[in-house]
C-alpha cells in the first residue's frame, strides 16, 4: 500500500507531457526546427523571439526583421504589391486544380470546361475564383504601379526596380491574355482574334510575329496548345524570376520608400 502511494500511476496529463517532451527533445524534431524556432522552446513575446519568427521561416524572411514604422501603415501602400503577389499564389493554386480537368485541344477544351462546371465538385467555384482573381490581379498590379508613381518611389535608388515592375505589369497582362483563350468559347476566340490581329501590324516582321504566336496563319488547335503552354508554364516561370528580382531589390534598395 505504501509502495503505491510512493509511486502513484502517472495521470494522462503527465503522460502526455512526458511524450511531448520526448518528441520535442528528439533528434528528428530538432533537425526539422532550427535553433531559436518557436517550436523548440515556445513563444514568449520578446524582441529576440519577434526576430526569430521572421528569421526561422522561409516564407516570412522575404521580410527584414524590422521595418520602418511608416511602412506598416495600410494608408501608405494599401497592401497593393503584397496583395498582387497573394493573388498570384491564389491563381497558381486554383490554376493547378483546373489543369486536372482540362485538355488544350480544339475538340476537348470547351467540353472540358463545361464538364468541370457541371460535374466536378467545386469546379465552377474554382473556375470563377481563377477568372475573377485574374481580373483582380491586373487591376491590383495596375493600382500598385499608380501608387508607387504618386509616392515618387521610383526615384533613385529604385529606378531599376521600377523597370522590373513595368516588365511584371506586361507579364501580368500577357498571362491574363493567354488565359483568356483557354475556355475556347466564342468570347475567347474572337477576343484573341482581335488582339492578335493587332500584333500582325508590328513593323517589319508583323506576319512572322503573328505566325509564331498563333502557331499557324489562323487561330486553331495549335494556337490553343501554344497559349496553354505559355499560360501554365512559360509565363509563370518568367514572372517568378522577375518577381524574385523585384522583391530582392525592394530590400536591397533600402526597403519601402518614404515617408513623404
Amino acid at each position: 500500500m505504501a509502495k503505491v502511494l510512493d509511486n502513484p500511476r502517472p495521470t494522462a496529463k503527465e503522460r502526455a507531457a512526458k511524450i511531448g517532451g520526448q518528441v520535442t527533445g528528439s533528434q528528428i524534431w530538432n533537425s526539422i526546427f532550427r535553433p531559436g524556432s518557436i517550436f523548440r522552446k515556445g513563444y514568449t513575446d520578446s524582441p529576440r523571439n519577434r526576430s526569430y519568427v521572421i528569421m526561422n521561416s522561409v516564407l516570412y524572411h522575404l521580410h527584414p526583421v524590422k521595418v520602418k514604422r511608416h511602412a506598416v501603415k495600410v494608408s501608405y501602400t494599401l497592401c497593393l504589391g503584397g496583395l498582387s503577389f497573394f493573388i498570384f499564389i491564389l491563381l497558381t493554386v486554383t490554376g493547378i486544380f483546373l489543369m486536372f480537368f482540362y485538355r488544350p485541344t480544339g475538340a476537348n477544351a470547351w467540353q472540358d470546361i463545361q464538364t468541370l462546371q457541371t460535374s466536378v465538385t467545386f469546379g465552377l467555384l474554382v473556375r470563377n475564383m481563377h477568372r475573377w482573381g485574374a481580373h483582380l490581379m491586373v487591376l491590383s498590379v495596375f493600382l500598385h504601379m499608380a501608387r508607387v508613381f504618386y509616392h515618387g518611389a521610383y526615384k533613385a535608388p529604385r529606378e531599376f526596380n521600377w523597370v522590373i515592375g513595368c516588365v511584371l505589369l506586361l507579364l501580368t497582362l500577357l498571362l491574363s491574355f493567354t488565359g483568356y483563350l483557354l475556355p475556347w468559347d466564342q468570347l475567347a476566340l474572337w477576343a484573341v482574334t482581335v488582339g492578335t490581329n493587332m500584333m500582325g501590324y508590328t513593323p517589319v516582321f508583323g506576319s512572322q510575329v503573328r505566325f509564331v504566336l498563333l502557331g499557324g496563319v489562323e487561330i486553331g488547335s495549335e494556337t490553343l496548345l501554344r497559349w496553354y503552354v505559355l499560360h501554365v508554364i512559360m509565363l509563370p516561370f518568367v514572372i517568378i524570376i522577375f518577381m524574385a528580382i523585384h522583391f530582392w531589390r525592394v530590400r536591397k534598395d533600402g526597403g519601402i520608400s518614404g515617408p513623404l
Binding site: 524582441p47 519577434r50 526576430s51 519568427v53 521572421i54 516570412y60 521580410h63 527584414p64 526583421v65 524590422k66 521595418v67 520602418k68 514604422r69 511602412a71 506598416v72
Partner: peptide, 8 residues
C-alpha cells in the same frame, strides 16, 4: 523601426 512580426 518596428518589428515585422507582429506589426507587418
Amino acid at each position: 523601426k518596428v518589428h515585422t512580426w507582429p506589426h507587418l
